[in-house]
């Protein structure tokens, strides 16, 4: 069963490493709240397989002045698409 992982804290606490240990091929990762700081340089996401789609919540990027700074791999999504993503994947695992 596929999972959408949401990450809501900044890179400082290294949570992405724990998350990646559970990420399977085909899973997606959505950065929300302070998690969106993962999406701008220095890029911390090079170790994430190309099998895993990466998303970030547009509202949180906008709020933090990051929308124009994010890596090309990240797809910005609004709340409507956030809801759809939780349906596209079989379950949601939140990391905070």
């Amino acid at each position: 069963m596929s999972a959408l992982h949401t990450i809501s804290v900044s890179p400082t606490n290294g949570l992405i490493n724990s998350c990646l240990r559970l990420v399977c091929p085909g899973d997606g990762i959505l950065f929300i709240q302070d998690g969106v700081y993962h999406c701008c340089p220095p890029c911390l996401l090079d170790s994430v397989s190309q099998d895993n789609a990466l998303f970030a919540l547009r509202e949180d990027l906008l709020a933090r002045g990051l929308l124009c700074k994010i890596s090309e791999r990240i797809t910005p999504v609004g709340f409507g698409r956030f809801v759809e993503l939780t349906i596209d994947y079989d379950k949601v695992i939140s990391w905070s």
């Binding site: 809501s8 302070d34 709340f79 905070s96």
Partner: peptide, 20 residues
């Protein structure tokens, strides 16, 4: 004290507006 509650509220509104 944190944004998570507001994110939950915004998610809930979006889900309902899509008919879920």
């Amino acid at each position: 004290s944190s944004q998570g509650a507001m994110t939950a509220y915004q998610f809930a509104r979006a889900a309902v507006s899509q008919g879920h």
